[in-house]
């Protein structure tokens, strides 16, 4: 599953640490999600989407391999 968290962060000019603090996870978790190594839970996905004031589908997208 790919995502646009890095792009959204760049738009808002915030760091991984800022996002991590906002959604109450570690910075490493945000890094792992951004690099598509870790797929977050529905709850965390919704929190991230809410933080960027958008929908989950706008941030996360299924890939052929999923």
């Amino acid at each position: 599953m790919k995502n646009t968290i890095k792009v959204e962060r760049a738009k808002m000019n915030i760091t991984q640490s800022d996002l991590a603090e906002a959604v109450k996870v570690s910075k490493q978790t945000i890094h792992s999600i951004e690099s598509a190594r870790f797929v977050p839970s529905t709850v965390l996905s919704l929190k991230i989407a809410r933080f960027f004031n958008t929908t989950v589908e706008a941030i996360f997208e299924l890939e052929e391999t999923d």
Binding site: K24, V25, S26, Q28, T29, S32, F38, P40, S41, L44
Partner: peptide, 11 residues
């Protein structure tokens, strides 16, 4: 648990 327990640490 970790100080900041999240999805990733659980996994």
């Amino acid at each position: 648990k970790e100080k900041l327990e999240d999805d990733r640490s659980t996994a």
